[in-house]
Design a protein around this nucleic acid. Structure first.
Length: 606
DNA sequence: GTAGGGTTAG
């Protein structure tokens, strides 16, 4: 005999747990606020159920409720969207400023920040006055969208409304200008502040750090301390990145002590910035020490360590660290893979590089970006697979940047392939003719091959097109002061004691077998002596000589250069490390060279 | 219900 199903199971449709929660809520607390359900909500379906429920509670026209509801939507991009929030917003007949502010903040944090601008216009057209909640959001939106013009107009309105001293709006203004690459306007806003708080200091210091003006950032950091304002974790992130930019290890160590003393090392980001600082200042040992002392390591922390190993030429350690990261259950991201590919390219690990490259999309669902392609080009180029690299760029699924071709051009130069170099520079010129370095690299390549007619042609082309070379600049930190030297300083001017010392130094180097590589000098018509002088006052040599003269015997000389190290300076540095028994650590724009006992860690492969 | 944010090819 068939059993009769119980009425409960046969009549009610199957209910999800969430549905049950709502029903229970409904029966127990009929007229109460459904907002308390929001924290438990984890899908769009559930969100819609709560929305339906609001109608029963007669909250559908309650602005306060709707604002909180929309705010929740804008904060949970995993299962809801700004589009959804905007639909809800459009159905509200009489919004108020707070609701507009909530929408603007949502957009400013979304991947379509520019949408905050029409919303802002709408707010004005409704006759509302924006307040100190509105401006930070719309300014943040301008920052993310790099919308300088809109940002300036908003700044005007801030002034008109007399809000230009507001403590919430000022940092946003500063940050808007710096994010739009106008740090000088940001500084003007900062200077007009009557009593800038630490957040405003952070905004301007970060701005200077981002546009590579570390000295200005550091001098503001000192000012902040003089005023007895307390630096925060964010302050330290920026000043540590300034130490990294300058390669100023002693200053960086001081900052590390400061961080520890003020308990700021509890922030993972600060520790990650310390790893990066130590690595970029040439002390891999200290970077490892910070990493090993971290109790929690997130993806950026692991990535920073992998990048640190990679830039110091420890490719296998970088790969090993990645394995450890996987074992620790931390997910890699696109930066982790950049570090790994960088490690492979700088160690000539072609097979491993391809393996890493395919695994990123196959195993980890990370789509390679232009920088990953760049690493692959570098890997193929460095290892002499020049034609394969050319084909690789030509067949990319995305439009190559001039930088990609430039990478290959550098490889053509180190492998002495003039013909391919010429084809590559044509591809660069299709995209960009203004980059002085391209002319210089090809010209040097031609000069080494004795192709003087090509050298002349390139120089004329540069002149005709008004292209200028970026001057080489090297710096060295002595007693907490960073000294900068430019290539050619002293060639035509009155020479200083430093230049005289350098003249003597070169004589000594020649005695132990150093031969100036005058084939690297650009101008065919120069005499040998002239070429030698032009080489002698390269910025690297000036900085190293300064270090020799002004630091204790036996101590390490650390120099930072803005371009790639020149071949002649590389050779001179090897000899200097031997004669004077000094370790020289030279950071160029790409990597570290550790010179010791007449040898370099890069194995002359860079 | 407010602002500032580290790691990224060449």
């Amino acid at each position: 005999m068939a059993t009769v199903p119980s009425p409960v199971t046969s009549i009610s449709p199957p209910k999800s747990k969430f549905n049950e929660k709502i029903s229970r809520f409904e029966t127990l607390n009929p007229p109460q606020n459904p907002l308390s359900l929001l924290p438990k909500c984890t899908s769009l379906k559930e969100l819609k159920q709560i929305q339906a429920f609001t109608i029963k509670t007669h909250l559908q026209n309650d602005l306060n409720f709707l604002t909180k509801f929309i705010n929740f939507c804008t904060k949970n991009p995993t299962f809801t969207s700004m589009e959804y929030a905007h639909k809800l917003f459009d159905n509200i007949s009489r919004p108020d400023v707070a609701l507009f502010n909530t929408m603007a903040r949502g957009y400013s944090r979304s991947n379509t920040p520019i949408q905050a601008i029409p919303l802002f216009s709408q707010l004005l057209s409704f006759g509302f006055l924006p307040d100190d909640y509105t401006f930070p959001s719309v300014l943040k939106a301008c920052s993310s969208a790099k919308a300088l013009e809109e940002g300036k107009q908003i700044h005007c309105l801030v002034i008109k409304l007399g809000l230009n001293h507001n403590i919430y709006i000022c940092p946003s203004l500063i940050s808007m200008y710096t994010e739009c690459n106008d740090v000088d306007s940001a500084r003007r806003v900062f200077d007009k502040m009557l009593d800038p708080c630490v957040i405003s200091y952070n905004a301007i210091i970060t701005g200077y750090a981002k546009c590579s003006r570390p000295n200005e950032a550091l001098s503001l950091f000192r000012e902040l301390q003089v005023k007895s304002l307390k630096p925060t974790d964010v302050t330290m992130l920026s000043v540590l990145s300034c130490c990294a930019l300058l390669g100023a290890l002693d200053l960086g160590k001081w900052m590390h002590e400061y961080v520890k003393k003020n308990g700021l090392d509890k922030y993972i980001k600060v520790s990650t910035a310390l790893i990066d600082m130590y690595a970029k200042c040439g002390s891999l040992k200290d970077a490892i020490c910070v990493f090993e002392n971290m109790s929690i390591r997130d993806t950026p922390a692991w990535s920073a360590m992998i990048v640190a190993y990679a830039t110091h030429g420890k490719g296998y350690k970088a790969i090993e660290t990645f394995e450890e990261m996987r074992k620790a259950g931390v997910q890699p991201d696109e930066i982790t893979f950049l570090g790994l590919l960088y490690a492979c390219s700088h160690n000539g690990l072609v097979d491993e590089g391809w393996r890493v490259f395919s695994s990123m999309s196959d195993k980890y669902s990370i789509i390679p970006g232009i920088k990953h392609y760049g690493c692959m080009v570098d890997l193929l180029g460095r290892t002499g697979n020049l034609d394969e690299a050319y084909k690789f760029i030509d067949e990319l699924p995305i439009k190559p940047t001039p930088i990609l071709w430039r990478t290959l051009l550098a490889a053509c130069s180190s492998h002495g392939d003039v013909e391919l170099g010429k084809r590559v520079i044509e591809r660069i010129f299709e995209l960009d003719e203004s980059h002085g370095g391209d002319y210089v690299i090809l010209s040097n390549l031609c000069a080494r091959a004795g192709r003087w007619e090509d050298v002349d042609f390139l120089r004329k082309l540069m002149n005709d097109r008004g292209v200028v070379k970026v001057p080489g600049c090297s710096s060295i930190e002595v007693d907490n002061v960073v000294h900068e030297f430019f290539s050619g300083d002293g060639v035509n001017t009155v020479s200083t004691s430093l230049h005289k010392a350098l003249d003597e130094l070169m004589k000594e180097l020649k005695m132990v077998g150093y031969v100036p590589d005058t084939s690297l000098v650009f101008h065919a018509e120069m005499g040998e002596a002239e070429k030698e002088i032009s080489l002698r006052y390269h910025s690297e040599k000036l900085a190293i000589a300064y270090g020799l003269l002004n630091t204790p015997p036996g101590s390490t000389i650390r120099v930072v250069k803005n371009l790639r190290v020149c071949g002649d300076c590389h050779s001179a540095a090897k000899h200097i490390s031997q004669i004077f028994d000094r370790q020289i650590i030279l950071r160029d724009v790409q990597r570290f060279h550790h010179f010791r006992n007449g040898k370099c860690s890069c194995g002359d492969f860079w």
